[in-house]
Write a protein that binds this DNA or RNA. Structure first.
Lengths: 235, 235
DNA sequence: CCAAAGCAAGAGCAGTGCTCTCTAATGTGG
DNA sequence: CCACATTAGAGAGCACTGCTCTTGCTTTGG
């Protein structure tokens, strides 16, 4: 008699499937956080879940597919953290929002080092991220573009002139990413975006050992300089 | 009668040892370049060399030790490439030497992606680089400091004032790395150093796919902006 | 109600890092 | 010059990995 409720799609089996899939990802994420991507073992995940390793292949066709799922989750987690930080700084001037987002990225990276390494470190060998990851991967970049856009619509942004050889490329990038913004701003914003991850990566991967001690202050200043480089002003 | 020549240290056995050690590293480097660090297999190296895997442990006590040797070599190779680029630009102004070194780093990274990933990507899981790597790892950084020093001794460098919270740290860094240079220059130089690797890493690890097309021009401009940020001027 | 599809389990293959034991070649001191 | 000690290599073996295939069992939809 009682028909399946709409939030119970396709009966108990399908529900079990999403639950098991989630459990696998959770356990995999635990191992990832504990030991790093290369030591993530399908067999160990299955063992911990009380199932046999071959059963796991019903849910993820290969180890790489599992990693892809974790990569997307990591991008989304980082993106959400960055967006939350931006929302919290909603009232501030764009330059301060920029710094807030940079600090959120750094904070997330320090809290999830192995997941950060998974998405921004060396790509897992022989593995190249599929198209599926693109939307999640783009979130932080889009957020930064949004901040620059807000600044531009308020007061405009300071423009550093581009060399002739870069003008066509900058115009192309602007047309593709933010046609309403000046190419100079887009070009410097993309450079700053990449440089942000240089700062975070160096701290995370130990390159700052015995070099930078007060990393929090160092990073805050560097992020502020990046904002300045993009043309944002602290009012 | 004929005593062992001085360039044949400790007889034939020791000589064979260095040769075999070198052969192992060479083959390992080949596999590293072909497949990446995680797929580097001791057994495959041994197989290729016509020896049995256990024999390899006479030369490297573990896979990690082999990787460490490769890491040091990679750092040295990169450092040599950077130094060569600097030497070639010896006559130019410091800002141009800076850009030349940056481009050399990028060029080396594009030519040796897996080795670059080995040293600047995520550290190999569970592995932390031992002290032995430090001197080789420092070469590019020291080179950049040298360029800033030359600029400072010629015309001085443009100084961007530091926020109060960063002053002590900047003074500490300057005292440790280059007591003869102003703290502002050292602080911005270290940030630029890290940011350089953000630019290279993003390009190498595919983050610029569908975003930046003319990467050469983009990078050159970004490197020039870094030089400017450090206080170097293109005269 | 019954065939079809989904699922878990087990065995098995080829590969890995690493250890241990044994033999043979190579050095070295008396 | 020879006995002893050191060292290189070989082979077997352990515990692990990703992945495949077959075999039954359970759920599901017509």
């Amino acid at each position: 008699m009682n028909a399946p409720r709409p939030n119970a799609p396709q009966g108990a089996r399908a529900r079990a499937r999403i639950e098991v899939t989630a459990a696998i990802k959770d356990e995999a994420r635990r191992q990832l956080a504990a030991e790093g991507a290369a030591k993530l073992s399908l067999r160990a995940v299955a063992r911990e879940l009380g199932m046999v390793s071959s059963a796991l292949y019903r849910y993820f066709p290969s180890r790489d597919e599992l990693l892809t799922a974790l990569i997307i989750d990591a991008y989304d987690s980082l993106g959400a953290a960055a967006e939350a930080a931006d929302a919290k700084a909603a009232g501030a001037v764009p330059a301060e929002r920029w710094v807030a987002v940079c600090e959120a990225v750094r904070g997330w990276a320090l809290a999830h080092p192995h997941e950060y390494a998974l998405i921004y470190g060396s790509p897992v060998p022989g593995y190249s991220a599929p198209e599926t990851t693109i939307p999640s991967a783009a979130r932080v970049g889009l957020l930064l573009i949004g901040i620059v856009r807000d600044a531009y619509q308020r007061n405009g942004v300071a423009r550093t002139p581009l060399p002739a050889e870069l003008k066509p490329e900058a115009q192309r990038m602007a047309a593709a990413l933010a046609p309403d913004l000046p190419p100079e701003a887009i070009a410097s914003m993309i450079a700053a975006w990449a440089q942000l991850y240089g700062l975070v990566g160096f701290e995370l991967f130990g390159q700052f050992n015995k070099v930078v001690e007060d990393r929090e202050a160092f990073f805050r200043h560097a992020a502020a300089r990046l904002a300045h480089e993009v043309g944002l002003v602290f009012s």
